[in-house]
Design a protein around this nucleic acid. Sequence first.
DNA 1: CCAAAAGTGTTGGCGATACACCCATGA
DNA 2: TCATGGGTGTATCGCCAACACTTTTGG
Lengths: 256, 256
Amino acid sequence: MRGRNHKKISTALNQQPCFDSAQQPLADFKVGVDNVIFSVDTTQNRLLVLLVMRQQEPFLNYWSLPGTLVRQGESLEDAAYRIMAEKIRVNNLYLEQLYTFGGPNRDPREEVSSYGVRYLSVSYFALVRFEEAELIADKVTGIAWYPVKQVPQLAFDHNEILTYGHRRLRNKLEYSPVAFEVLPETFTLNDLYQLYTTVLGENFADYSNFRARLLKLGFLCDTGIKVSRGAGRPASLYKFDAQAFAPFKDKPLVFI
Amino acid sequence: MRGRNHKKISTALNQQPCFDSAQQPLADFKVGVDNVIFSVDTTQNRLLVLLVMRQQEPFLNYWSLPGTLVRQGESLEDAAYRIMAEKIRVNNLYLEQLYTFGGPNRDPREEVSSYGVRYLSVSYFALVRFEEAELIADKVTGIAWYPVKQVPQLAFDHNEILTYGHRRLRNKLEYSPVAFEVLPETFTLNDLYQLYTTVLGENFADYSNFRARLLKLGFLCDTGIKVSRGAGRPASLYKFDAQAFAPFKDKPLVFI
DNA sequence: CCAAAAGTGTTGGCGATACACCCATGA
DNA sequence: TCATGGGTGTATCGCCAACACTTTTGG
């Protein structure tokens, strides 16, 4: 029974917590959306993240994650897509919310503003196909793919956000078919394997087992087309068959 | 194509806080924190969620997730802990950020307010030990554990948040040792098994296999103490050994 | 003694690892 | 022809589901 919950009920009342709109001053917020946009350059086996050079204070001339402030009538996700559309042209893309960073003093503007407005950042995680991604580079805005291993010091707490996004990417890759969102339409099994090693490190099965497992699952179909890359036997190009994958949807599937 | 918004990046120092570079009015936000607080009543095998009765408009007299608005100088996590502290007294607790809901028009107050202030909710997910949890019930605030299968229509989009939290709980349970945060200090293996079936349904191994697997992992230690519950052979009480679990930390461990 | 709950043991199958080996191409 | 990378096959081991069995209690 839950009988003994009544011992010390009373004295929390002086704080009168719940309806603090009258008692305690509430914080006012501007809400920003910052995107961690990854892609994988399969030709060089590098995991890349999209950075933009800041054109204004604070953190003028620092690299940062592409972000924006949320406008009136705009949902968080709308804002996330808007950033994408401003920086990059892609056909395929995977996007999901990552985390919300909202401590006080995470943005220097808070101190400048006399009204104590705080800046909160809802971060989104995106994955795009490197080959298809066309950066929208106007003259004033620096924008570039950075290898995640070489990102410099970023504006605000963006290094922390990036770290968080990177962890999420690794997890996603292990149990969901996001890999096929970043690969080109057709790819060799070695491309796929390289993608996994590039993102996850070398901590899993060797190529032949990886290959056997994936093929047995049956959602990769051989196009029959062969492609030769330098010396060695030509490889088959495969395609991801979303139809055939459907039954695995939502099942605890492991790709490692 | 989608984005044409970038064509006019303002060159002047536009410190005006209410407009972004494309001269669109920014939204102003109040930020709320809503907690999805779960516990498991092992005696009745029920998964419970903590609800509070709203004492004011909007949604007066609706049940809702315990929540609050973020105060000046307060971090999101601070706010989440503050709610906990106001509603419940616990020794052990697991808490993590869940998701941020921020579409326009998710809160009726937005329409009333003439300034177009929007209400954003950062939700947190918590797990507490039912036996230790002492509800703080003052006279004005209704507060109760509800079986998740019987939650009524809630205020705002809280049903949606709850659904999301429930999904997270199931995932957590499968690959992390959160179960031991909700169980009492010592427990029988059957308690543990019941907890899993209560939260996840019956979709996994039978008791004897569950038992064998867990014991082989070696982080459950038998206290030697026996406890008898009605008819049948008495069961051993076990303890979770955090020390012995350490090596499994961060490893892709599956508990199902 | 019987029912009920706790706990142990056995077995068959499947999947993962670690290899060894065959195939097709460029140089 | 050899080196290189693509692709196939196989033996071993461990895990896991299913289920039969033993042990210890209350009635």
